[in-house]
Amino acid sequence: MNIDDKGNLVTAASDSDERVRDISAIHALVSRPDFGAIAGLVLVLFLFAMIAGDSGMFAADGILNWATVSAQLAILAVGACLLMISGEFDLSMGSMIGFCGMVIAIPTVYWSWPIWSSLLLTLSVASLIGALIGYIVVRTKLPSFIVSLAFLFILRGLTIALSILFTNKTIVSGVNNGAEDDWLAPLFGGEFGQSIFNWLAQIGVMDTYADGEPIVTGIPMVIIWSIALACISSWVLFFTRFGNWIFATGGDPKAASNMGIPTAKVKVILFMFTAFCAAVYASCQVIEFGSAAADRGVLKEFEAIIAVVIGGTLLTGGYGSVLGALFGALIFGVVQIGLFFSGISSDWFRVFLGIMLLMAVLFNNFIRQRLTR
């Protein structure tokens, strides 16, 4: 408090500014798209630490279990997040997983292709299909929900029909035989940091089995893929011109086009990237299990969208965070594995997903109203 020339009490500007800065900091924190996902993850971790903390869930192998499950979903969620920020949806991701799995398995097992060529073929075919979906969306102006829903059935039907046509079965095994000594297979099915974990076991930091082998031998490549895709996508979204184009395309496509932004090109590229992420997911899964099945990936598209929404991305586009989608996927993995460790029936997992989706949509709607005001 100060006294002016007339003897009146006045409030110091610095005091007022401090209050404004405090309020602005809180407002900025709450307004972050990933705030809800971060808060939800902390709450879920605390809950299962209380319920299942003594069951090994937070031991090294327990952490690896729910981190792997989370990473698998995170790969899909990263692609879905960028696409949803641009204002579009892709419901064909789940079917793309099963389709890509067969594209890898059939040439490798039945046509004796080297697995590296099958993997490259899969990534290329998936990207082309994604480009086709995006092209149809931007050319016809049809809702991406409808177009991608059509491809959900097309790809699932093709997966079943082609697998029966070429193999007379819907499950193809024996991929792991072709993956041995292949130069590209470890990029999808190998482990990272094996020497580090062996060293940790030798000095007594890492628990070991009776034969001295560490409980955790390395970090699965699916986790490395999820982290790499999330980091690269976040950098593109927030630090490049293309990232600005994504936000502008989802915020107001007509205004973005008037400003010279190639909105159609942006959407086609993002549909290709979403399909690429589904192909990466399928590649990691096929190399890990050594087989492909026509029913792989069922409902994964909806799980990815839920993870993205939990992560703070608006369904209307123009606002979101890849980091939030990553945290949303982590919530999935922690809950799914946490229910097992706590002895709770897994039937409650879907109930939890529905509740989390509803809470996330309500929170995101609140944030959207605050932003539009």
Results as ranks from 00 to 15, higher is better:
residue 188 F to T: 10
residue 333 G to A: 04
residue 151 F to C: 07
residue 155 L to E: 02
residue 97 I to D: 00
residue 287 I to H: 08
residue 24 S to A: 15
residue 168 N to Q: 11
residue 163 S to W: 03
residue 313 T to G: 03
residue 347 D to G: 07
residue 236 V to D: 06
residue 133 I to E: 01
residue 119 L to M: 09
residue 99 F to M: 10
residue 51 I to L: 15
residue 158 L to N: 12
residue 67 A to G: 06
residue 175 V to R: 04
residue 345 S to I: 00
residue 177 N to E: 15
residue 32 R to C: 05
residue 133 I to F: 00
residue 370 R to H: 08
residue 232 I to R: 10
residue 347 D to A: 03
residue 334 V to R: 07
residue 328 G to C: 14
residue 63 I to Y: 10
residue 364 N to V: 07
residue 35 F to G: 12
residue 86 S to F: 06
residue 267 K to Q: 10
residue 369 Q to W: 00
residue 27 H to C: 05
residue 321 S to D: 11
residue 29 L to K: 01
residue 252 D to Y: 09
residue 270 L to W: 01
residue 87 G to V: 08
residue 344 I to A: 15
residue 91 L to N: 04
residue 297 G to H: 09
residue 278 A to T: 05
residue 128 L to M: 11
residue 222 V to L: 10
residue 346 S to V: 09
residue 161 A to H: 12
residue 361 V to W: 02
residue 325 A to H: 02
residue 354 G to E: 04
residue 32 R to G: 12
residue 340 F to G: 08
residue 115 I to V: 15
residue 326 L to I: 14
residue 13 A to P: 10
residue 322 V to K: 04
residue 367 I to V: 14
residue 318 G to C: 02
residue 284 C to T: 15
residue 200 L to C: 09
residue 216 V to L: 08
residue 35 F to Y: 13
residue 100 C to T: 14
residue 178 G to D: 07
residue 277 C to K: 03
residue 179 A to V: 14
residue 304 A to M: 03
residue 182 D to W: 01
residue 289 F to T: 12
residue 108 T to M: 00
residue 43 L to R: 05
residue 47 L to M: 11
residue 56 G to W: 12
residue 40 G to F: 00
residue 325 A to W: 04
residue 107 P to Q: 05
residue 33 P to M: 06
residue 109 V to T: 07
residue 27 H to G: 10
residue 248 A to I: 02
residue 167 T to E: 06
residue 195 S to A: 13
residue 8 N to Q: 11
residue 239 F to E: 14
residue 324 G to T: 00
residue 167 T to V: 00
residue 10 V to P: 07
residue 89 F to C: 06
residue 366 F to L: 13
residue 179 A to W: 13
residue 366 F to S: 12
residue 198 N to M: 15
residue 291 S to P: 03
residue 55 S to K: 15
residue 255 A to W: 07
residue 310 I to Y: 00
residue 233 S to P: 09
residue 99 F to H: 08
residue 241 R to N: 03
residue 123 L to F: 14
residue 288 E to V: 12
residue 39 A to Y: 02
residue 301 E to G: 10
residue 341 F to I: 01
residue 167 T to Y: 00
residue 122 T to Q: 04
residue 346 S to C: 03
residue 225 W to T: 05
residue 264 A to F: 02
residue 89 F to D: 11
residue 112 S to C: 06
residue 366 F to K: 09
residue 71 A to G: 09
residue 68 T to C: 06
residue 340 F to L: 14
residue 281 Y to V: 05
residue 318 G to M: 05
residue 155 L to F: 01
residue 227 I to C: 07
residue 339 L to F: 10
residue 251 G to R: 00
residue 6 K to S: 08
residue 327 F to I: 11
residue 99 F to Y: 12
residue 45 L to V: 14
residue 253 P to T: 09
residue 299 L to V: 03
residue 230 A to K: 08
residue 327 F to V: 12
residue 304 A to L: 05
residue 46 F to K: 04
residue 285 Q to A: 04
residue 296 R to T: 11
residue 43 L to E: 08
residue 264 A to M: 03
residue 232 I to S: 05
